[in-house]
Structures are given as structure tokens and as C-alpha cells.
Simulated scan of single mutants.
Amino acid sequence: MSRIDRDLNFNETWMRVSEGLERIYRIQEISPSSHGELYALIYYYCTNTQPQSSGSKIPRRPAQNNLHDGDQYQTYCEKNKLDDIVDFSVIVLSSNSWLFAAPSNFILPVELKKTFDSFIKFYTQQHTSRKLTWLHQHSKGDLQTLYTKPRYILHVSTYQMVVLLLFNKLSRWTVERMQEETQIKVDLFLQVLCGLLKSKLITCAEINDNEFDEDLKETDIKMNYNIQIAEDFKSKKIKINLNVPLKSVEQKDIEDLHRTIDEDRKMIIQAAIVRIMRARQTLKDALLMQEVIQQLSSRFEPEISVIKKCIDMLIEKEYLERQSNENDVLHYLA
């Protein structure tokens, strides 16, 4: 086992477990409630804790509210006569417990916008001090093809849905116009488009049929290429799962996770330094760093360079000061 593996604390390990559960949720098409039960069982097993509600056999997933399952939003729609709302379920997660990257902005199609707007209005009425951030990179939905026989049900990501719904407006688009219409970031948009071309749901006049295979890359798609819906699309399956993780989305989540972990560790190191210095009042740099490492070694292995940065930060905040005649001696000020 490498040093990196040994050095993982619970938050890092749990993030990987949670990511695996998210993939199960996407790929296996299980319901939100079943996913929540699976999540909770593994969470409580890993943390060796018990659910707070003593009467429930299956613990609830921490920091989660499934408002749609409680029929609150459905009641709201009926009361306000919102009968053209897309059928959907929402899981509201606390940003304090879930380390997800905020998605880049894009333009919601008219088929989805009214539903999203109505839910935001409903939610803000219930929780005036909270703000919702849609995690489109972890959302999914079903589309039905009305132009094929038989009619297929496509299980797609939100990004794929946004692209495919363009063909309700026009049957042919250039790549450039599609990207401008959706405002999805170019690199992400090309990933989505490449996957849809491989599925053969859409076609490109400038790309030969034998190129629609695993060798097709985003860099092969030019902005002036013409894209159209494949009206002769055929599949042996009626339900087709097209929802696969995107590299750029996964990478951003991983980068944000490591950034969050680094910031959390700095706060933990600073707290340890303050505790030690409050007790000792005066201490040399080397001895302080040694004590910090000893105190935190059960959680993670602090790097010397990071400890030094934290000491400098605490000096700037006027928690500590260096002795004038001995620069390697620190005094506690508070």
C-alpha cells in the first residue's frame, strides 16, 4: 500500500465510496429512495454509528431531503394549477456534507425551464434563507422518441437531454449553432455530442458512417459540421441507457474535493498549533512542528511545508509572534 493510500482520512475514503454509489445510481437506474437506503446502510456501517430515529429499521441518508416523495411539490403544483410541469423527483443535499463542484451555466430548454423555475419558487417559499444550486452534472432523465417505430425511451444525462431537445426546434444544426444555443462549455459540449454521435441517435454529414465507433474523438468534430437527427434510428432495446460519466465533470469534482480537503487540513493544523501554543506559551519552531505531527498523525500526516504556512498565517492573524532575538522561538499572544 502506498503512502498516499495510508494517508487517506475518512472524508477522502468516504468521498470515493460516495462516488461509487453515485455511479450505481446512474448506471443501474435504481430509485432515489433505494439509493438513499443503500447509501445510509453503508454510511452507518463505515462510521460505526446508528441512525438517530430509533424507530426506523433503515437509516435515513444524512443531509438529504426528498421533497418530491413527500408530495409537497405535487400538492403545490395542483394548488397553483401547474399542469404542464415535467414529472421529476428532487433530492436536496446540504453543501456542508456533500462535496460537489458547481456546474457551469448553460441555457435550459423551454421544456425544462418552467419546471425548474416552479420548483425554485416552491422551495424558497419553504426555506427563505437557503439557496439552491442545481447539480446538472449529476442529474438525469428520460426522453421518448416520437419519430421512430417503435418509440424508444432514452435514459440520458441533463446535458444530453439539452442537446437532444434542440431537435424539437430544427431537424438540422451546425455544431457551432448548437453550442451557442445551449451555452454549454465547448469542451464539455463536444464530449456530449461525441457520445450521442457514437450512439447513432444523431448523424453528421461530414463524418463517414464507419467512423461512428469507439475511435471517434471530440477533436474530430469541427464547429462547422452539420448535425441532424437520425430518423431511421434502430435499436434492439426499447430502453436505452446513454448516461455515462463525462471525464471533465469527474475531474472537476476530484479537483474540488482535493482543494476542499487541503483547506480543511489547514484549519485542523492551525487549531492544533493554537492548542499547543496556548498550553506551552513559548516554543521553538521544530518542537512545535513535531508536536503537531504527533497530535494529527492518527488522522493524517501533515506536511512540514504546510505546517510552516499555517504558522505564518497565525502570525499574520496575531495569534503568534516570533521572539525578536531568536527567530525560531514562537510566543502565544491571545
Rank of each mutant, 00 (worst) to 15 (best):
Leu246Tyr: 15
Leu288Pro: 01
Lys217Pro: 05
Ile268Arg: 14
Asn224Tyr: 07
Leu197Trp: 02
Lys237Tyr: 15
Ser235Gln: 06
Phe233Ala: 04
Asp262Thr: 02
Gly195Asp: 12
Leu201Gly: 03
Leu288Cys: 04
His258Ile: 12
Phe233Trp: 09
Asn210Glu: 14
Ser199Leu: 03
Lys239Arg: 10
Ile202Trp: 03
Ile238Phe: 06
Leu201Arg: 11
Leu246Val: 03
Ile202Gln: 08
Ile229Met: 15
Asn241Val: 04
Met267Ile: 13
Glu263Phe: 03
Gly195Glu: 12
Phe212Leu: 15
Lys222Glu: 14
Val192Asp: 00
Leu196Ala: 04
Glu218Val: 08
Ile269Asn: 09
Leu283Gln: 08
Asp220Ala: 09
Ile227Phe: 09
Gln191Phe: 00
Met267Trp: 00
Glu206His: 07
Thr203Val: 13
Glu214Cys: 12
Asp232Trp: 11
Asn243Thr: 02
Thr203Trp: 14
Thr219Pro: 00
Asn226Arg: 06
Lys198Pro: 01
Asp256Trp: 03
Asp264Asn: 14
Ile238Ala: 11
Asp215Ile: 05
Leu216His: 03
Lys236Gly: 09
Leu216Cys: 03
Cys194Gln: 15
Ile273Lys: 11
Lys252Gln: 11
Lys222Arg: 13
Lys217Ala: 04
Asp262Pro: 01
Ile268Leu: 06
Asp253Asn: 05
Asp264Gln: 06
Thr219Leu: 09
Asp215Leu: 11
Lys236Val: 07
Asp253Thr: 02
Asn243Trp: 13
Leu193Gln: 01
Met277Gln: 12
Gln270Gly: 01
Asn241Tyr: 09
Val192Ser: 02
Gln191Thr: 01
Ala230Ile: 05
Lys234Asn: 10
Thr260Gln: 11
Pro245Gly: 09
Ala286Val: 12
Lys222Thr: 14
Leu246Lys: 07
Ile202Gly: 08
Leu196Thr: 05
Leu287Tyr: 13
Met277His: 10
Ser248Cys: 06
Gln191Ala: 06
Lys239Ser: 10
Ile261Gly: 09
Ile202His: 01
Asn243Lys: 07
Asp285Leu: 06
Lys252Glu: 00
Asn224Met: 07
Phe233Tyr: 15
Tyr225Met: 15
Ala230Trp: 09
Leu288Tyr: 06
Gln251Leu: 09
Ile268His: 08
Val244Trp: 12
Arg265Cys: 04
Asn224Val: 13
Asn210Val: 12
Lys236Pro: 03
Lys234Tyr: 00
Arg280Thr: 05
Pro245Asp: 08
Val249Gln: 07
Ile261Cys: 02
Val192Phe: 13
Ile202Arg: 08
Ser235Met: 06
Phe233Cys: 03
Ile202Glu: 01
Asp215Glu: 11
Glu231Met: 06
Val274Asp: 04
Ile207Ala: 07
Gln281Trp: 08
Met267Phe: 02
Lys239Leu: 05
Ser235Ala: 13
Arg275Leu: 12
Met223Asn: 08
Val244Met: 11
Asn241Phe: 10
Asn226Val: 08
Glu206Tyr: 07
Lys198Glu: 07
Asn210Arg: 10
Ala286Leu: 04
Asp256Pro: 00
Glu218Ile: 07
Gln251Asn: 11
Met277Ser: 10
Glu218Thr: 15
Cys204Trp: 08
Asn241Lys: 10
Ile276Gly: 02
Leu193Gly: 09
Val249Met: 04
Glu214Gln: 10
Glu255Ser: 04
Met277Arg: 12
Met267Val: 14
